Simulated assay, not measured.
Amino acid sequence: MLLNAPPPPKVWNTLERMFTAHSRALSMNIHYQLATLNKGDSSVANYFHKFTQLTNTLAAVDQPLLPHEALSFLLAGLGSKYDSLVTSVKTQLHPMSLEDLYGHMLGHELRIAQNQPTVDLSNVSANFTNKGSSTRGGRGNCLPSNSNYTHVGGRSNFNSNRGRGRGRQNFSSNRPVCQVCQKQGHVAL
């Protein structure tokens, strides 16, 4: 038996069919991944990196995407925050290169980040306080609903027999109502 003899044609045909089937399955899987690829919360750089990995794999199995197909896949996964960019790219007379589009995507991402409102949560409070003083203790400006609380002639009166030093106290009835107190069944003062 000769060691350098080529394998019989039947073996070549089998190998070619196996390689073609594997290549086709890989290609279909990558096309599916490209069709479902979304930027989501990831950065433009990460999104573009995933995209180029997939397109490079297609090129490696000798099935590269046409430029307009690549643009379509890349634009499709951007999301609604990039609608203005997608519209401008689609309405251009001459197709944009992937590298140019990547630059525009990075610029758009920076613009979105600059326009995000900042929220300072350090000043947020569940209690509403009003200028003026209250002579009673406790948290917030709420009284349990079972307190002896009356409203007489434009003034609100509160009579509590809890502890010494507390007696009849007057509170204005036109003070804001705390929504937290209302939900808990308290009377807001």
Rank of each mutant, 00 (worst) to 15 (best):
L2F: 06
L3M: 13
N4Y: 09
N4L: 12
N4E: 14
P6W: 01
P7D: 12
K10D: 13
V11E: 15
T14S: 10
L15C: 06
L15I: 07
M18K: 11
T20P: 00
T20A: 14
A21E: 12
H22L: 05
S23C: 03
A25W: 01
S27L: 01
N29F: 02
I30Y: 04
I30V: 09
H31T: 05
H31C: 05
H31I: 01
H31L: 13
Q33G: 00
L34R: 10
A35N: 15
T36C: 01
T36L: 01
N38W: 03
K39Q: 13
D41W: 00
S42L: 04
S43V: 08
V44N: 01
N46L: 12
Y47P: 01
H49L: 06
H49C: 08
H49S: 14
H49K: 15
H49T: 10
K50Q: 15
F51G: 08
F51V: 05
Q53W: 01
L54E: 06
L54G: 03
N56V: 01
T57H: 07
L58C: 06
A59T: 12
V61R: 03
L71K: 10
S72H: 11
L74N: 02
L74C: 06
A76K: 15
A76Y: 09
G77T: 06
G79V: 02
S80N: 10
S80M: 03
K81T: 01
K81S: 09
Y82F: 15
D83N: 13
D83S: 14
L85H: 09
T87V: 05
T87W: 02
S88N: 06
S88W: 02
S88C: 03
V89K: 05
V89R: 09
H94S: 11
M96S: 13
M96Q: 11
L98Y: 04
L98W: 03
L101A: 08
Y102M: 07
H108D: 03
H108M: 08
E109W: 00
I112H: 11
Q114A: 06
N115M: 08
Q116A: 08
P117Y: 04
P117M: 11
T118R: 15
T118D: 10
V119D: 04
V119K: 11
L121A: 02
L121E: 07
N123F: 08
V124T: 11
A126M: 14
N127C: 02
F128P: 00
T129I: 05
K131W: 04
G132S: 06
G137N: 12
G138K: 10
C142H: 08
C142F: 07
S145E: 09
S145N: 10
S145D: 09
S147L: 03
N148D: 09
Y149H: 13
G153R: 10
G153Q: 10
G154L: 02
R155N: 13
R155S: 04
F158K: 04
N159R: 12
N159Y: 14
N159W: 08
S160Y: 05
R162F: 04
G163D: 09
R164F: 04
R164H: 03
R166F: 07
G167I: 01
R168K: 11
S173A: 11
N174Y: 08
R175K: 12
C178L: 05
C181H: 13
Q184W: 03
G185H: 10
H186V: 00
V187I: 15
